[in-house]
C-alpha cells in the first residue's frame, strides 16, 4: 500500500466529530486607510512617501543613480540604470529595486507583489534596498479584503512584504536588514 493510501486510511480512524466551516465576516475599519497604512508601515520599519507620486519616485531614483548606485526599475514610467539580467544570481549587486505593489494592507503595512512584475522572483529579496510603488486606491483595510483581491494564478508566486527584512535572534535586539532588503520605502501613486 502506498504511503498516501496508508495516511488517508489512518485518517478514517480520526476521533474528531465533523465541525462546520465558519463564515469569515470580520467588520473592517474603513476610516483613514492611508493613515492606518502609514502607522503600521512605520511599525514594521518601512517609510511612506505620500506626496509627489511617480515624479517624486523618479527624482529619488535619479538621485540614487547620481550617487553611483545600481538601480533596477520594474515600475512603468520609472527609468533606472540597470536592465533585468538573464539569471537571478546576477541581481546580487543591485542596490535598489523599484517594484510595483498591487495591494496595500492598512492593518499591517504589507504590500502584495506578484512575480509577473518582478523579472526574477528573487528581485525584492536580493536587492540591498527596496522601493515599492503603490496606487493609493489599492489600500484595503485588512488581510480579509486583500485575500479576495490578490492575484495568484496557477504556477505563480506572490508575497506580502511588510517593511524591510529584520531579525531579533541575537538577544532580542531588533536589527533591520537580515537577508532581504535593508530598507523599504513606499511611494503612493
Amino acid at each position: 500500500m502506498s504511503s498516501k493510501l496508508e495516511i488517508l486510511n489512518a485518517l478514517k480512524l480520526s476521533a474528531l466529530m465533523n465541525h462546520p466551516m465558519p463564515s469569515i465576516e470580520v467588520a473592517p475599519r474603513l476610516e483613514n486607510l492611508v493613515g492606518q497604512f502609514e502607522t503600521n508601515l512605520n511599525a514594521v520599519a518601512g517609510t511612506l512617501h505620500k506626496e509627489g507620486g511617480i515624479k517624486a519616485l523618479q527624482a529619488k531614483v535619479d538621485e540614487l543613480i547620481a550617487q553611483g548606485l545600481q538601480v533596477i526599475s520594474l515600475v512603468e514610467g520609472v527609468t533606472a540604470n540597470r536592465e533585468m539580467p538573464p539569471t537571478a544570481h546576477e541581481l546580487k549587486d543591485i542596490d535598489y529595486a523599484v517594484i510595483p505593489g498591487e495591494i496595500g494592507v492598512a492593518e499591517n503595512g504589507a504590500i502584495w507583489v506578484n512575480n509577473k512584475n518582478l523579472g526574477h522572483r528573487v528581485t525584492p529579496f536580493i536587492c540591498e534596498n527596496l522601493i515599492l510603488a503603490l496606487p493609493t486606491n489599492k489600500i484595503v483595510p485588512t488581510l480579509h479584503q486583500a485575500a479576495k483581491e490578490i492575484t495568484l494564478a496557477s504556477g505563480e508566486f506572490g508575497v506580502f512584504i511588510a517593511g524591510p527584512s529584520k531579525t531579533a535572534d541575537i538577544e532580542q535586539a531588533l536589527v533591520v536588514g537580515a537577508h532581504g532588503a535593508c530598507s523599504s520605502n513606499v511611494y503612493l501613486l
Binding site: A43, V44, T142, L143, A147, F160, I161, A162, S165
Partner: peptide
C-alpha cells in the same frame, strides 16, 4: 486563501507582537 488570511492575522501578532511577518510568501508553482 481566506482561511490563511485569518491565521496570518494572528500568527505574528501572537509570536512577537508584529502586525504580520515581514514576508508571507505564496508559492503556487
Amino acid at each position: 486563501v481566506d482561511s490563511a488570511a485569518v491565521l496570518l492575522r494572528t500568527l505574528a501578532r501572537n509570536a512577537t507582537g508584529q502586525p504580520v511577518t515581514t514576508y508571507s510568501a505564496f508559492y503556487r508553482g
